[in-house]
Amino acid sequence: MTGTDRPLVVSLLAGDGVLGAFGLGVAAEVFGYDYTRFGLPRFDFAVVTDRPGIVRTDTGLALYVEHGLERLTVSDIVLVTAWEKLSAPVPPSVLDALRAVHARGGQIVSHCTGAFVVAAAGLLDGRRATTHWRYAGELAARYPAVEVDPRVLYVDEGTIITGAGTASGVDALLHLVRREWGSTAATALAREMVVPPHRDGGQAQFIDTPVARCEDDLLGLVLDWARAHLAEEISVEVLARRALMSPRSFARRFKATTGTTPHAWLLDQRLSAAETLLEGSDASVEEVARLVGFGTAAGFREQFARRRGVSPRTYRQTFRTGAVVRAARDDGDAA
């Protein structure tokens, strides 16, 4: 979704006369404003429905939608927000439109129960997907060809991303921005939205165990320390010692608090730091590997390619130019 001067067309699909208000708000925040100063492209954002006119939201507010499904034929990104009437069949015209978007390589992102619509179109067959944990069992039962994972925040299957409920819609869209336009753009956008810049899709949708406030504060200090010392060798034992806990207790508390393991969290932090360096510095891949705490450049390349789908060099070639142009422009503005 790069290399074009025209605005990218982004359409939010309102389902069966009902629109998810939270999903609309998140989508409008990401795609409804001019963020070209962050290195993002221009977006042409609008809501579509199969029957243009007054569409109510799930909170009762009404919205006038002027665009019909024909807009999907020119959309680069189609967002499918929460679908309220799960028991009713999805209109065939909607399913056909989504299939056509997918067939020509358009990006589809579902939020919450929007995954049911994508699944009804047959686009999730043989793929991993997620939805709000409350509806995951129903999604799996209704569409057995879909590998439903109720634990995660979002699942990236290339041209289809499925997100879980409510706030994970923010995570899924920031992930898309990060994947398509780089870590620098995603971080700047997250700062503008006043949200965390990156939560890995593998994190849990919810946490089972309440955590005492004082332990949260201490764990936060430990995580801040770890982020500032990624170049060092950091083990669970090192983190546990700083938290004044046994390694076993620390690992259990870490999982209960964050929904992921210390190892997975450290890996994600190192990869995120590496992206920032690849975009915004001239450090070699070997130097980046050292600065973010990978033992060898070969190990770094392997992990980066496995988690990001491209090599560090390709990632830099994709996103470095935009970072340099923005930096030069910022320097000129400052002058």
Rank of each mutant, 00 (worst) to 15 (best):
R104C: 13
V146L: 13
A129F: 06
D149N: 14
A231C: 06
I77L: 15
L139F: 05
W83I: 04
D156C: 08
T209V: 14
E70D: 15
Y33D: 14
S281G: 10
V94P: 12
F43Q: 11
T187E: 14
E275Y: 02
V117R: 05
Y143K: 06
T260Y: 00
E286Y: 03
A186C: 07
D282I: 01
Y143C: 14
E275T: 03
V10M: 07
A212H: 10
G53R: 08
W225I: 06
L291Y: 02
Y33I: 02
R307I: 05
L124E: 05
V170I: 15
W133K: 03
D44W: 12
S183F: 05
D268Y: 00
G299S: 10
F294S: 09
P91D: 13
A231I: 00
V148M: 10
A327D: 08
G122N: 05
A28M: 01
L61V: 07
D50Q: 12
A21N: 04
T131Q: 09
D16C: 06
M193L: 15
D217G: 07
A167C: 06
L8R: 11
E192W: 09
L173W: 01
L69M: 02
A14L: 03
E237I: 00
A97F: 02
G114W: 02
I54F: 13
E233Q: 14
L219Q: 08
V146Q: 09
H198T: 01
A328I: 07
R142Y: 05
V65F: 09
V310A: 13
Y64H: 15
A212W: 01
E192T: 02
I207Q: 12
T314P: 06
I160Q: 11
G322V: 04
I160E: 11
A100K: 04
V211L: 13
L176E: 01
T59W: 00
V118F: 12
A204S: 07
A243S: 04
T258P: 03
D208S: 09
L244I: 00
Y64K: 13
L8V: 10
A231Y: 01
R151P: 01
P7Q: 10
D58E: 09
G68A: 05
A283G: 02
E157Q: 15
L63Q: 10
E275K: 14
Y35L: 04
W133G: 02
Q303A: 15
Q205V: 13
R253M: 15
L13C: 08
F319I: 03
G299K: 02
L72H: 08
H175W: 08
G15D: 03
Y64I: 09
G20A: 12
R191T: 12
F319E: 03
Q205L: 06
R270P: 04
E66Q: 10
P52T: 00
A88C: 04
T162S: 15
Y35D: 09
E275G: 03
A119G: 05
D200G: 07
G158V: 10
G17S: 11
Y33E: 14
E237Q: 10
R6V: 07
F45S: 12
S168Y: 00
T49I: 06
A251F: 01
V74T: 15
E233M: 10
L221N: 11
R142F: 06
E237K: 06
P150A: 12
G23Y: 02
A145H: 11
H175F: 08
Q205A: 10
V177G: 04
G182M: 11
P144V: 04
M193Q: 03
A14Q: 01
T131L: 11
E287A: 14
L63A: 12
L221Q: 13
G23K: 02
S235V: 02
F31S: 11
A327L: 04
P210A: 13
I160S: 11
